[in-house]
């Protein structure tokens, strides 16, 4: 098997794992295992959230490849499949064609249908509003806003707007809608409605993951993810601020 092609396939698997939500250490580990399974005498992987660099020694020659990573989209199903594929590759050492066929199969897998995702957003924002102390009424209003938010997110994704601004826009929409609903007398506390919906945007998970990377030893990735989480929070705060300004007075 051609080593350059093998290396490129291994990086593709690592790249997609990283995009779909794997930790940096898992990505590095998978790439090292795959290359070693095909007989690399030495593999060095350096991964940060935006790039992967791999050097591998095969038969006395060193092959190096770099991959730049630009967008993320949490997809745990994809991560699970890629993880299984990488285990299978290490155990059975299939040829490049087989690997590439399976990679493209995984990348082309079907997503959950839009109505199902709408229902999920509906459920998530409603449940978290009640969870954070809102009334049942707040929960229902929040669930409706949550479903609207998904449509908003789909629209933004299509336009490819940068992350800070897309969060700014979403949080603006949430805050305005929540304030309007409460002013109309539907729902009791706007802040609980906003919190339930913001859970869908919030970098809370990113913040926790970044600290996990940082304390766990992947300092570079940790710092980058931490800054990213802060930037997203700034975006959300910006949207909130704009909405408060437009609606007149903080809720």
């Amino acid at each position: 098997m051609e080593y350059a092609r093998l290396l490129s396939d291994a990086i593709t698997i690592g790249e997609k794992m990283l995009c779909s939500g794997a930790e940096v250490s898992r990505v590095e580990d998978s790439i090292v295992r795959i290359c070693s399974a095909y007989g690399a005498s030495r593999v060095d992987v350096f991964t940060i959230t935006s790039s992967i660099v791999v050097s591998a020694d095969f038969d006395g020659k060193t092959y190096t490849q770099t991959r730049r990573i630009k967008s993320y989209r949490t997809d745990l199903d994809m991560l699970d499949r890629l993880n299984n594929l990488s285990r299978f590759i290490c155990a059975k050492k299939p040829d490049g064609e087989y690997v590439e066929k399976h990679i493209s199969e995984i990348l082309g897998k079907k997503d959950y249908s839009t109505p199902f995702q709408l229902f999920a957003h509906f459920l998530t924002s409603g449940a978290f509003t009640v969870f954070f102390g809102g009334s049942l009424f707040d929960g229902i209003v929040s669930a409706l806003i949550g479903a609207l938010l998904l449509l908003c997110v789909i629209f933004i994704d299509r336009k490819g707007i940068n992350k800070v601004f897309s969060n700014l826009f979403s949080s603006f929409v949430i805050t305005v809608l929540a304030t309007i609903f409460v002013k109309l007398g539907l729902g009791d506390s706007a802040d609980k409605i906003i919190i339930g919906n913001i859970m869908l945007l919030i970098p809370g998970l990113a913040l926790t993951n970044s600290l996990r990377d940082l304390i766990g030893g992947d300092i570079m990735s940790g710092v980058l993810r931490f800054l990213e989480a802060c930037l997203v929070a700034v975006g959300i705060a910006g949207g909130y601020f704009a909405a408060v300004f437009v609606m007149g007075g903080a809720v």
Binding site: D75, D77, A120, G126, A127, F128
Partner: peptide, 17 residues
Amino acid sequence: LTAMLGTLGFSVVFRSK
């Protein structure tokens, strides 16, 4: 209960298997 429902919804948002 709401924690459970919230995670249920989120598992779809995060595209769990």
